[in-house]
């Protein structure tokens, strides 16, 4: 009886020591949670979540101050990714923070632009080039579609243009499994049908 207890105790001690040593020796310096959350966010820096950019929102999520469904540009997929990362339940996008829209870029109407530079200052990613009293223009590839340039424009010359699909950005669709061969849905719906 006693010897059995002693053996068990000794075993516990040895294993405990081994585990303790391993936890120190092989300590994994993981990515801090905030960075991982930040990596799931779309980096539009639009502030629709109520924070001053994606990183502050990530910090707030990590601290538990914000929910995971406040990012309209990230959309449903972004929420799913966050839910996966944080082991939480998926929830639909909070309506208070906006709706998921198709990706768009800002377009400045060159005839109307007065060159006030307000949009340049508002742009979080420096995607607008131009100078005071010169026409401004949006560098399309840098624009994240955050819409932050819309409110400051005094002449309302900025509009959001949805990014149209072209041959270079076109994607093969998920194969439609026709269990019954009849269902003849077009594989590539025309824009009119899709709209």
């Amino acid at each position: 009886m006693l010897s059995a207890i002693a053996v068990m105790a000794l075993g516990a001690l040895v294993l405990g020591a081994a585990l303790g040593y391993a936890s120190i020796r092989f300590k994994v310096e993981g990515d801090p949670l905030v960075d991982k959350i930040d990596a799931c966010l779309p980096q539009t820096q639009c502030g629709q979540c109520g924070f001053a950019g994606c990183h502050p929102y990530a910090e707030a999520i990590a601290k538990g101050e914000a929910d995971i469904n406040q990012c309209p540009p990230g959309g449903e997929e972004g929420i799913r990714r966050l839910a996966d990362l944080l082991g939480r339940e998926f929830k639909p996008l909070s309506a208070d923070h906006g709706v998921e829209k198709p990706k768009a870029v800002a377009l400045i109407d060159e005839q109307t632009c007065i060159g006030c530079t307000l949009c340049i200052q508002a742009c979080p990613v420096d995607a607008i080039v131009g100078a005071a009293k010169q026409m401004h223009t949006v560098v399309e590839s840098l624009c994240t579609g955050c819409e932050l340039c819309l409110p400051p424009c005094p002449v309302e010359c900025i509009s959001m243009e949805p990014i149209a699909e072209d041959i270079a950005t076109w994607k093969w669709k998920y194969p439609v499994t026709a269990i019954r061969p009849a269902a003849a849905t077009p594989l590539h719906p025309s824009p009119a049908q899709a709209a």
Partner: peptide, 29 residues
Amino acid sequence: YFRFAKSEIWAREKEKAAAEAAKTRFEFK
């Protein structure tokens, strides 16, 4: 299925690169 997966991966990689660039630019600003 493979074509679908490939084009999704390309699109995601593009998106990821764009987000990364946006983040860098935002931080620089």
